[in-house]
Computed example of a mutant assay.
Amino acid sequence: MMRWIAMTLTLTAAVTMLPACAESTSGNETEAAAAANDDTSEAAASDDLATAVFAGGCFWCVEQAFDEVRGVVETISGYTGGDVEDPSYEQVTYEDTGHLEAVQVRYDPSIVTYQTLLESFWHNVDPTDDRGQFCDKGHSYLSAIFVADDEQRRLAEASRQALKDDADAPSPIVTPIREARTFYAAEDYHQNYYEKKPVRYNFYKNACGRTDRLEELWGDAAGKP
């Protein structure tokens, strides 16, 4: 289902109520986004960088969370986990593609570890929700950790078990650990959305209850590595 905000509000002309990702973009915005993506892609071309993939509901929010982690060089919103090649947002939202909204994180392992990225992931999701994330419900908004090799799996499973063993952590932990699949970048207008449309983004994030729920789940650790 599409990402709907479950309330009726009167908004100013600067902020219109709409399904969060179902927004078109102008040609100039698309070109600017493409140029920005080219710049970050070039920066992330080094063989010294590593890649991690996480799904945590709205990829706009997950992208912002990881961009704030020191050592993260690039984040890309996209789709993974399903069988449809090069899907569109509309396909992932409305059709049975098997894909989740996800974020590919390119990072410098000499600055930040995969373990730290896992901690940041947990503190930015509701791992107890098996229907979606926050106000966004449906298969494409499920949380998941996609592991690319045995070491990532070992670390991911250890971090999940540590939460299960922690009496103070949220429970039950239902977020799965899955084998990495082909990752497809989302449309340009989704990339760095929180920077390009901050007013709309912050309205959506707050109205969806993401910040409040994270604080309820994680306390002072909410949203942090």
Rank of each mutant, 00 (worst) to 15 (best):
M2I: 13
A6W: 05
T8W: 00
L11W: 00
T12C: 05
A13N: 06
S24F: 06
G27L: 15
G27Q: 15
E29N: 08
A32S: 13
D38S: 13
A43G: 06
A44K: 03
A50I: 10
F54D: 09
G57Q: 06
F59N: 08
E63D: 14
Q64M: 15
D67W: 03
R70S: 15
E74K: 11
G82M: 04
S88V: 11
S88P: 03
Q91V: 03
T93R: 13
D96P: 00
E101N: 08
D108K: 01
P109E: 12
L118E: 04
D130T: 01
D130R: 02
F134W: 03
C135T: 04
K137D: 03
L142T: 00
S143Y: 00
I145Q: 04
I145T: 01
I145V: 13
V147P: 00
D150F: 00
R153P: 00
L155P: 01
E157W: 00
R160T: 15
Q161V: 08
L163M: 09
D166L: 05
E187A: 03
N192T: 09
R200Y: 11
F203A: 13
Y204H: 14
G209Q: 08
T211N: 15
T211H: 05
T211I: 15
R213T: 14
E215A: 07
E216M: 11
D220S: 13
A221P: 08
G223Q: 10
K224F: 11
